[in-house]
Computed example of a mutant assay.
Amino acid sequence: MMATTHVGFLSFGSFLPLPSRISFSKRRTFAMAALSDDPIREWILSEGKATHITKICPVGGGCINLASRYGTDAGSFFVKTNRSIGPSMFEGEALGLGAMYETRTIRAPRPFKVGALPTGGSYIIMEFIEFGSSRGNQSVFGKKLAEMHKAGKSSKGFGFDVDNTIGSTPQINKWTSNWIEFYAEHRLGYQLKLALDQYGDSTIYQRGHRLMKNLAPLFEGVNVEPCLLHGDLWSGNISSDKNGEPVILDPACYYGHNEAEFGMSWCAGFGGSFYNSYFEVMPKQPGFEKRRDLYMLYHYLNHYNLFGSGYRSSALSIIDDYLRMLKV
C-alpha cells in the first residue's frame, strides 16, 4: 500500500534469537513500560545486548510512521514510532514479519519488540538490513516468494491471528474456512462498505455486492490452500540486501489464496522471469488469468477509500467487466 513507511535497513553481526512469541508490551504491562523515560533505549541497552548507543539517525519514509536507525556497539536497529496510534498496529506488523521470517525462505526484517510510548503512541524495534543498489534479480525473487507461500501454511483456515492494516485502512482477518467467503466478506465487502460510508457511493457498493455473490465460477477446478501472504506487495515494499538477495518489508500479512499476492502487481513491476520462476515452485492453476483483476480490485478499492476518486473508475471498471463475464 503506497502510503506506508518504506526505508533502508542495515544488518548487524550477531542476531538475537527469535523468541517463540515476539515480545509485546501488553496492556497489563503498559504501566510498567511507562515508568521508563525511553523504553526503546531501555530495551536496546538490555535485551538488545548493547552497552551504548552511538547515534540515532532519522530515516526517510512515508506519511504514517517516523523511522530511525539506532547505531550501537552491538550493531544497528531499526525503530518505527507513531505518536497517535497504540501498539496494535505494530503488533500486527511484528506478527507478520515474524511469520515470514520463520519460513526461512525470503528475507524479511526480524521483529524484536513492540510497546507503548510513555507519552502516547507506540514503537516497534526490528533488524536493520543494509539494502543493495537495486531490487535484485526478479527470477530469484519469484522463486523465494513462492517458497514462502509453499512453506507458510495454516491449519486454521483463511485469516490471521490479529487484524492488521493495509496502509492505514483496517484489514479484517477473522478466521474463515472458505476462501470465497473470506475474500468476499473481509476484503471486497469491507472496502465496499467504506466507500458507501465515506462517499455515499451506492453504485459501486451495489454492483460490488452483485459480484461478491457470484464469485464461485471463477474458482471452478481450483484447489485454494491458505498460504502465508505478505499482503501488500508493491515496489516500495520490495528490495534486496547488500548480497543481492530479495527482501520484503512493511507487510499486511494473512493466510490466503497465493494468487492474491499479485493484487498490487499494477505497481509492483513483476516481469516474465518473476512469474516463470514463481510458477516452477507454485504451479499455475486453471483460470489464473481470469482471477488476476479480482485480486487487484481489493487494492483499487482501498486506494479509492484512502486517496479519493482517482481510483474509482479502475475499481468500477473491474467490477463491471466481471459482471458481464459472469452474466449477473
Rank of each mutant, 00 (worst) to 15 (best):
T4L: 07
T5W: 08
H6F: 13
V7R: 08
S11I: 13
F12K: 05
F15E: 11
L16K: 07
P17T: 14
I22G: 02
S23C: 12
S23K: 11
F24I: 15
R27G: 13
P39H: 00
I40H: 06
A50Q: 03
T54K: 13
K55N: 15
C57T: 15
P58D: 14
T72G: 12
D73R: 07
G75E: 13
S76F: 03
S76D: 15
F78S: 04
S84Q: 14
M89P: 03
M89V: 15
F90N: 04
E91P: 07
G98Q: 00
Y101G: 00
R104P: 01
I106K: 00
I106P: 04
R107I: 02
P109S: 06
T119M: 01
T119E: 14
E130S: 12
F131Y: 07
R135V: 15
G136Q: 12
N137Q: 12
M148Q: 06
G157V: 07
V162D: 01
G167A: 08
Q171Y: 14
F182V: 01
E185H: 01
E185P: 01
R187G: 03
G189M: 08
G189L: 08
L192E: 04
K193T: 09
D197P: 03
Q198M: 06
Q198R: 15
D201P: 02
D201E: 03
T203P: 02
T203F: 02
Y205C: 10
R207G: 06
L211Q: 04
P217V: 03
L218V: 05
E220F: 07
E225C: 09
L229R: 00
S235D: 11
N243Y: 09
N243F: 05
L249I: 15
Y255R: 03
E261R: 02
F262L: 05
F262G: 01
C267G: 12
G269R: 12
G269E: 11
G272E: 14
G272S: 15
S273K: 10
S273P: 04
F274A: 00
V281Q: 10
P283S: 06
P283Q: 09
P286L: 00
K290H: 04
R291I: 02
L294M: 09
L294F: 02
M296D: 06
L297G: 10
H299T: 07
H299E: 12
H299N: 09
Y304P: 09
G308T: 05
G310S: 10
S314A: 12
S314Q: 08
A315V: 01
D320L: 08
D321V: 06
M325N: 06
